[in-house]
Write a protein that binds this DNA or RNA. Structure first.
Lengths: 239, 239
DNA sequence: CCGATAGGGAACGGATGCGTTCCCTATCGT
DNA sequence: ACGATAGGGAACGCATCCGTTCCCTATCGG
C-alpha cells in the first residue's frame, strides 16, 4: 500500500518548484545567496536553529499561540509556523500536541515562579510592602502572554488531571506559599495576627487577581494595589 | 522534553464513542413500537419533544456538554445526542455552534442571577448574615454543572467579545451589584464603614469563589463560609 | 572540505466535525 | 381521521488538522 515513495521527485529538479512557494520570500532568501541583501533587507538571512535553541523557540511559540488562539485553536502547524520550523521537527521532540503544550507551560511557569517562591525580604521591609512587591510582580507576569496562556488553559484543566496538577504545583502552590511566608514573617514581626495565617488569605488575594487580570483584563496600577492592600487586605490580617 | 505519561483530554478524543453510538439502540425503540416494553422497560417510549420544550432540552444539553467536554469538545452532534434529537432540529433554530452556546449560557444565567440581584433582606438580618446567605447561594450555583460550564468558557471568552460581554452583564455584574447592595445597606445600618463601598470588595469575594470553586473545585461548607466571613471579610469592611 | 546529522517543506491518509440535504415518521390542528 | 407541520436519522461535501513520511538542504564535527 502506497509503497511508491516518489511523486515529489518529479517536481523538485526544476527551479520552478521553489518559484511557486507560498510567498516567494524564503525562496529569494535561499536560492540566491548573493542577493539577499538587495531583495529583502539586511536581516533577510534566517539562520536555521538547532537543538536546545530550537526547542526553546518552539516552546515559546506554543505559549504564544496558546495565548492568542487558546488550546482549541492551537495547531501544531501554527506553532511550527510561528517558530519558523516544520511540523516534523516538533514531532521529533514531542509525541503529541498535549505533551508539547503541557511541557511548554510547565517550563514557562517554572522560571518566574521559582523566583517568587525563593524571594526573601530584608528586615527593613514591612509586611505591607513585601505584599505590595509580590503583588506587583505577580500581576506583571499575569498580564503578559503567559497570563493569557494560563487563562486559555483554565477551562481545559477541568478535564485534564495532568494540567490541573501542573497548575497547582507549578503555579498556585508556590504563589500561595510565598504569601504564607510573608504572613509568617509578619507574625514574627508583630504586624500580622496569628490567626491570619490561613489558606484563605492567599486564596482571596489570588482570586482577586484572577478576577481582575485574567477575567476582566484590567491592569492594576501601583496606587490601586496600595489602595487594595491598605484598604482591605491589611485590615483583614492586621494584629 | 517531558516523558511523563500524560493523557490529556484533548478536545476531541474520547467523544468518539458517543459519536456513532446511535446504531441500534434508538432503532429498537422506534422500529418496534409493540416491543418497547419488553426490550427497555416500561418507560421505553420516548415522546417526541416539540417547540419550546425541545428548545429547552437542547439548551440544557448544550450546557451539560459544555460542563463535561468544554467548548472545544462540544459538538453539535453530542448536543443532539444528549437532547435526543437530530442535528437538523438544532440548525433549524441556531445558525452556528457559537450562537447555540451563547444563547444556552445566557438563558442559563438569567434565571439564578435575576433571583440574586433582586434579593432583599429584612431588617432583622445583619450584613454578615446577608453576605453569608448570598455566598451560600452563589457557591451552590457555581458548584453545579452551570459552574463547570462557566469555567469551560472562561478561556474562550478571551477571544470572543460577545462571550466576554455576556459574562460580565449576565453574571459578574449582577453578583457584584448584589454585594454592593448589601454593603450599602450595611452602611445605612452602621455595620459597614463608608469607604468599604468599593468594587474591590465584590471582586475579592468573587475571586475567592472563582479560585476555590471553579479552579480548585472545593465545596465550601457553611462553617467555612462563616469562618471566611468572620475572619477576613467582615474585618476588612467593618465600620 | 566532506560526510553525518538534524532541520525545513510539502504532501499523504485518516479522522473528525460543521452545516446541509433528503426522506421518513410522529405529532398537532381541525 | 387526515393532511400539514415539525422532528429524527443518516448520509453527503467540505474543510481542518493530526501525525507520518519523504526528500532536499543547512549546519556541524572532524
Amino acid at each position: 500500500m502506497t509503497s511508491a515513495p516518489l511523486n515529489i521527485a518529479e517536481t523538485s529538479d526544476n527551479t520552478a518548484a521553489n518559484a511557486h512557494r507560498d510567498d516567494g520570500r524564503s525562496a529569494a532568501e535561499f536560492t540566491s545567496p548573493g542577493q539577499e541583501g538587495a531583495t529583502s533587507g539586511e536581516e533577510g538571512v534566517r539562520p536555521r536553529k538547532r537543538g536546545a535553541e530550537l526547542e526553546e523557540a518552539i516552546r515559546c511559540a506554543c505559549v504564544a499561540e496558546l495565548a492568542e488562539s487558546g488550546y482549541g485553536g492551537l495547531t501544531i502547524e501554527s506553532v511550527a509556523a510561528r517558530a519558523q520550523t516544520g511540523k516534523a521537527s516538533i514531532y521529533r521532540r514531542w509525541p503529541t500536541k498535549q505533551e508539547l503544550v503541557l511541557d511548554s507551560l510547565t517550563s514557562m511557569m517554572s522560571g518566574p515562579v521559582m523566583r517568587l517562591a525563593d524571594r526573601t525580604y530584608d528586615d527593613t521591609m514591612t509586611t505591607r510592602d513585601a505584599l505590595l512587591e509580590l503583588l506587583s510582580e505577580v500581576s506583571e507576569f499575569m498580564l503578559g502572554p503567559e497570563g493569557d496562556a494560563m487563562r486559555s488553559m483554565m477551562g481545559e484543566s477541568l478535564r485534564d488531571e495532568t494540567f490541573t496538577l501542573s497548575f497547582r504545583c507549578d503555579f498556585f502552590d508556590p504563589r500561595k506559599q510565598a504569601v504564607l511566608d510573608i504572613l509568617q514573617r509578619g507574625i514574627r514581626r508583630g504586624e500580622v495576627r496569628t490567626t491570619a495565617l490561613d489558606d484563605v488569605v492567599p486564596e482571596m488575594i489570588g482570586g482577586l487577581f484572577i478576577h481582575r487580570i485574567l477575567l476582566l483584563r484590567q491592569r492594576p496600577t501601583r496606587p490601586e494595589l496600595e489602595r487594595i492592600l491598605d484598604g482591605f487586605i491589611m485590615p483583614a490580617i492586621r494584629a
